[in-house]
Design a protein around this nucleic acid. Structure first.
Lengths: 179, 179
DNA sequence: TCACGAAACTGGTATATGCCACTATTATCA
DNA sequence: TGATAATAGTGGCATATACCAGTTTCGTGA
């Protein structure tokens, strides 16, 4: 009963037909959480990517544009600085910088230096970027709906909650403390 | 309830302290399953990576070596071909080829052409590779144990099961059929 | 105010991954 | 058997992501 719904959801493929065999997993995929997450990430990248491709954005790029849009809407003062953006994305600052480059190059995002603290730069959606985000949003919705329909909306939400915990700052800190 | 255990597990950080705020998520991280998985993957990459770093292997590399070891142990005839390996890793064949390069370069893996079908190549662990795998395995165990202790062993297993479904071939096929 | 340490990026290098074009081999079938 | 389709990899190019070294700018304390 403490089993997560996904494992027994009627809409989800039977786990028994997966790589598992009886009690133990023939390939060991069931043992490593890190591996399990990466495999799922690659698969979802394929599935969402196939659908989002027409917009010409990688899934991560769309996520970035969406985050910038939401941050702007919330008019959070601290939001938008590369530092905060990186933390929110659970991404290395330099990785974010590299990831942002093609978006800046293509005119979807602009980097605005802060007037008060010249070390700081803020990433902001351009008009073109907003349009592209909206375009991608429509396609994303198709993918997300299909995923929810297949995996189960409840189970999908539960999975996201579990993953949010794993991705959280608090979890990382506790992990690093060796608890 | 149909809530996944992780969300209420005593060992897991309170979700309310995460990015969520009241009913809606301030940054939208709770909406996209793909984004949620990627964020968690980056975080786990950091956490497992920090611990596994002393072995000098990236998490993905260790996963690859481990898979090759298990495949060899199971003496599965079809296993080991790059094609099958890629499918098992839920990875593009060319991506696997690229990923394998540093491992071959460093002498952990060797690519053996098949005698019967000269198109086919099999990846195989070298002795050095087996040693490195074992070294990484010990470190990996530390990370996995810590994760399970923090997230909850049951919840961790449940999460892996859910992710295995998402990563499965069957799920991808159903998704692509548009169901 | 000046030295020094902290903070925020930038750029270089390496791995991770995907798509596409191309080559080599094998399988099919008229 | 010979043309054609299918399969398995390889290599090039682009993005994703990390770590580290270096630069600029701030903040702080003597």
């Amino acid at each position: 009963m403490d089993e997560p719904a996904p494992a027994s959801a009627p809409t989800a493929p039977a786990l028994d037909e997966g790589p598992r065999e009886g009690q133990s997993d023939r390939w060991g995929w069931d043992y490593c959480t890190n591996t399990a997450v990466r495999r799922a990430a690659r698969r979802l990248g394929q599935l969402y990517g196939d659908i989002s491709a027409p917009a010409g954005l990688m899934p991560t790029q769309h996520t970035l544009l969406t985050h910038l849009k939401l941050a702007a809407a919330a008019s959070d003062p601290a939001a938008g600085t590369l530092q905060n953006l990186a933390a929110a994305m659970v991404m290395d600052l330099s990785a974010l910088g590299h990831t942002l480059k093609p978006l800046v190059r293509d005119g979807y995002v602009e980097l605005v230096p802060d007037a008060r603290d010249r070390r700081v730069k803020r990433a902001r959606l351009t008009e073109k970027g907003e349009a592209k985000q909206a375009e991608g949003q429509a396609l994303w919705h198709v993918a997300q709906s299909r995923f929810d329909a297949l995996f189960g909306a409840e189970e999908s939400a539960a999975l996201r909650r579990a993953l949010a915990i794993v991705a959280s700052e608090e979890f990382a800190e506790a992990f690093k403390r060796g608890e």
